[in-house]
Structures are given as C-alpha cells and as structure tokens.
Amino acid sequence: MAASPSSPSPRRRTQLAAVIAAAVAVVLVAAAALAVRELRQRGEDGVSVGGVPVAGPPSSSPSGSAGCDSSTQGDLRFDTEMTGADGEAVPYSVSLPADYYTACRTYPVLYALHGRDQSNATFLPEAERLRAAVEAGALRDVVIVTPDSNEDGRWEGAYDTHFIDDLIPHVESTYRVEPGAAQRLLVGWSMGGHGAFRFGVEHPADFAAVWSVDGAMSREPQSYLEFLSGVEAERPQVRLVGGDLNGDRVEQVVDLFAQQGVDFPYQREPLGHDFKLFVEADQQADWTTLRWMDSQLGRQL
C-alpha cells in the first residue's frame, strides 16, 4: 500500500528518529557535562585521586555542635581544592576523625607538608600514620590537612601565601575545627621539613607547635636569619629531627640559631629518608614528640 501523502515515509520516519535521538543525546551530554562541572566546583565528583575520593567539604556547620546534624554522612578522607585570593586553585587533602559526622564537636588541626616529588594527595596516607598517636592516647583527635606545593615549590612564594593566607582561614571557616593559632599543629617532611621550619620562624605566632622531620633545609642557611627578630620576640615552639640524608643540613641551621641565642630542640636519628621510619621511631619512644605537640595545644600565643 502506498504511504499517505500526509504521513512521512518509513525512510523519512527513520531519519526523523535518528535526528531526534541525536538531539536528545546532545542535550543529555550537555546536561551531564554541566552537572559534572558544578560538582567539581564543589569538589563532589567522586573521582578517586591517588586512591582518595575527591569530595567537597562536609555540609555540616563548622561552628561547633550548634547546627550540627549528626545524621549527615560523608567521606572521611578526600582531595579537594579552594580558590586563593589570586584566583588560582589551591589543592589540599583532608583526613577527618572517625567520629566527625556523629560527635558534633570541634577538633584541632594538624597540617602536614609533603616532600619533593609528592603532592597533597600522595602525602595524605603518610600523614595519616600520625593517627597512631591518637589511638595511643598521645595526641588528641585532629583534622589532618595536607596542603600542596606543586611537587617542588619549596613552600615559598605563592605556596607560602596560599597556605598561610588562603588555606588556613578556609579550613577554619569550612570544617568543624577549633579556630586560632593555639589549635594548629604543623609537621613537615623533607622539603616539607624545610617548609615547616620556615613557616615556624617566618610566622612564629601562627602555630602552637612545629615538627620539622629530616628537613631539606636551604643551602643558604643564613637566609633563615631574616626572621630572627620575630623568633626572638615570639619564641616559637619548634623541634627538629635529622636523619642520614639531611641531618647535616638540619644541624647547620640549628647551630646557626644557637649562635644567635635561640635554641631549638634537635635530635639526630640514624634513619633512612623515609617519613614512616621517623614516625615509628617516635612511637617506639612512647610518642615523645607527638605528646609534646599535644601539650602545646591551647597555650597562650
């Protein structure tokens, strides 16, 4: 039977169906792309980076138990980012206490700085080794945050600004943490050990306690003396440990400040260049350093 003049032919119907299907596909792809972009802007796309889920900050109120919904759940560890005052992305990773979503309380913050060729994401599992001190009762439960220094940024320049001026205020306004310098701990490993020491002497009133671990200190140790006047005024609580690789460089810096009348507690350990080894050494010493750091929380700065 011939097709009615007012009805599309079978071939025409097939073509129309294909056009409609293509149009629907374009709309769906565009909608999905928009959704992913919006989720990524909130850091909630669920992608895994270095085995850690990418997620956004918890939706619960950062202001203590008031307004905290204990039924809210979320990832306890994730990679995310915020935008700095200069418009640049500032990546960081977070490890939350196990009871973060149920206890509705606030926590101190432990910032951990990675070494060369690492990132905030790759160093987070290393920083989480410090939770063993929490389990042992040597350190109160903390929110662990690992900032990023672009693998070899030496924690200077933009990476100084992003950490001190951008990330710290962001963390204290986004998560349920105790605000203020008296509730901040800083640990740095290798290049981050240099960074932790540098932040400790450059910003001596910004952290309750600092632990520099086998720091890859500046080849020009005199450069740290730029911050001597602030150190003399504030007397920051900084401890250093050196190992087989960087021990000599650390000792140079410690001796240099000692000549200026500023003594930083320092220990030399016969250990290879592995953050895990230094954490284990402190554990074997009944968490001497982590207990000291905990004792500094809440002190008047």
Results as ranks from 00 to 15, higher is better:
P58K: 01
A208K: 09
P204W: 08
L96M: 03
A33G: 08
V134S: 05
A133V: 03
Y92E: 14
R198T: 08
A258T: 11
F123C: 07
P108M: 08
W189F: 12
H273D: 03
S190R: 05
D69H: 02
A25W: 04
P270V: 11
A196V: 02
P204Q: 07
S70H: 10
L240E: 06
P57N: 05
W211M: 04
G153I: 07
F123S: 02
P179I: 08
L39A: 15
P221R: 06
S218I: 06
L34M: 05
S190K: 05
F275V: 09
H114Q: 12
A23G: 13
R12V: 07
M82Q: 12
S223V: 06
P57E: 08
G115P: 03
E269W: 13
D248P: 04
Q41Y: 05
A209Y: 12
V54T: 15
A233L: 13
R176S: 15
D166F: 14
Q237W: 07
D148L: 12
F278T: 09
P270Q: 03
P62D: 12
F227P: 00
E172K: 10
P265E: 05
P97S: 10
L76A: 01
V201D: 05
P147V: 13
D75R: 02
Q284T: 08
G74D: 04
S65C: 13
S60N: 13
Y224I: 06
R105D: 14
P5Y: 00
S4C: 00
Q237V: 14
L256Y: 09
S4D: 03
S149H: 09
A32C: 05
A98T: 07
A21F: 06
D148Y: 12
E135M: 04
Y266N: 09
D166Q: 13
L301S: 14
V213R: 02
E128I: 02
D244F: 02
A216H: 02
E202K: 11
Q73D: 09
S223F: 00
V187H: 07
S190Q: 02
Q222H: 06
V143P: 09
V171T: 12
E226M: 08
S93T: 10
K276A: 11
G247H: 02
F275W: 08
V187Q: 07
V213I: 14
